[in-house]
C-alpha cells in the first residue's frame, strides 16, 4: 500500500495512472447524477412545506458540500506539500482552488434562487450559510489572486500553501462568527434542508447526487492536476518523450 502511494506520487506514474481512472470517475459520477436528477425531479414527492422548490437542494447541497470539501483538500495537500515537500500535492492544491471556487459560486447561485420563493428575496443576509459561502468564495479568490501574482511556481506553491493553512484555521472561526451574527437578529425563519425526517424517496436521490457530484469533482480535479503536473514537469525527460511521440491530449 505504502509502495503504491509512493509510486503514485511520482509524476509520470500519476500522469499515466490518472488517465486510466478519470473515465471511470466521470462515468460512475454521470450515471449517479443522471439517476439523481431524474429521481429528484420526477420521482421524489414534493415537500409539504416548500412544495417543488425543495428540489433545488438536489444541486445546492452537493455544490455546498463540495465547496467545503475542495477547501479541505486544498489545505491538507498544501500542508503535505509544505511539510514533506511533495510536488504532486502542491499541484493538487493548485488544481482544487478554481474548482472549489466554481462549486462555491454554484452553491451561492442555487442558494439564492432557492431563497427567492422561500424568503421573497434573492439575497438574505440573515442566513448564515449563504453568508458563509460568500466568504468562502472570497477566500478562494484571495488564494487564486496570490497564486497568480507570483511568477515562480515553487514560490507560489509555498506562499499559497501558507495562505491556505491560515485560511483553514480561520474557516471554522468564520462559520462560527457568521452563525453568531445571524442569530442576533430575528431574520425570516429558515426552513431546514433535509433533516432526519426526510422520506427515503427524497433522501436516496440526494445521496446519489452527492456521491455522483463527488465522483465528477474527482474526475475534474484529477484532470486539472494532470495539467499542473505537465506544466511543472515541462523540462523533464518523460514529458519530452510524451509530447514528441505525439500522444496528444489524453
Amino acid at each position: 500500500m505504502w509502495k503504491f502511494i509512493h509510486k503514485l506520487a511520482s509524476p509520470p506514474h500519476f500522469y499515466r495512472f490518472s488517465a486510466k481512472i478519470i473515465p471511470w470517475f466521470a462515468g460512475v459520477g454521470s450515471i449517479l447524477v443522471i439517476y439523481g436528477t431524474y429521481a429528484g425531479l420526477f420521482l421524489a414527492p414534493s415537500d409539504y412545506q416548500q412544495g417543488d422548490a425543495f428540489r433545488i437542494i438536489y444541486v445546492h447541497v452537493p455544490a455546498a458540500y463540495l465547496s467545503m470539501m475542495a477547501y479541505s483538500i486544498m489545505a491538507v495537500s498544501a500542508a503535505i506539500g509544505l511539510i514533506w515537500r511533495i510536488k504532486l500535492s502542491h499541484a493538487v492544491a493548485a488544481a482544487a482552488a478554481p474548482l472549489g471556487a466554481w462549486f462555491t459560486f454554484l452553491a451561492l447561485v442555487t442558494g439564492s434562487v432557492w431563497g427567492k420563493p422561500m424568503w421573497g428575496t434573492w439575497w438574505e443576509w440573515g442566513d448564515p450559510r449563504l453568508t458563509s459561502e460568500l466568504l468562502m468564495l472570497f477566500l478562494y479568490i484571495g488564494y487564486m489572486a496570490l497564486r497568480a501574482a507570483i511568477d515562480d511556481t515553487v514560490k507560489a506553491d509555498k506562499a499559497s500553501a501558507v495562505l491556505a493553512l491560515v485560511g483553514a484555521v480561520n474557516v471554522p472561526i468564520i462559520h462560527f462568527s457568521v452563525e453568531w451574527w445571524s442569530s442576533l437578529h430575528q431574520g425570516p425563519t429558515i426552513i431546514r434542508e433535509g433533516g432526519p425526517a426526510m422520506p427515503v424517496e427524497m433522501l436516496y436521490p440526494l445521496l446519489a447526487m452527492i456521491l455522483g457530484f463527488t465522483f465528477i469533482f474527482g474526475a475534474l480535479l484529477l484532470g486539472r492536476v494532470r495539467t499542473e503536473v505537465l506544466f511543472r514537469e515541462r523540462r523533464a525527460r518523460w514529458v519530452r518523450e510524451l509530447v514528441l511521440t505525439g500522444a496528444g491530449p489524453g
Binding site: L139, A145, L146, V166, N170, S177
Partner: peptide, 9 residues
C-alpha cells in the same frame, strides 16, 4: 484580497 475575508470574524 487576502486579509479581508480572514478579518471578517
Amino acid at each position: 484580497l487576502l486579509i479581508l475575508p480572514l478579518a471578517m470574524p
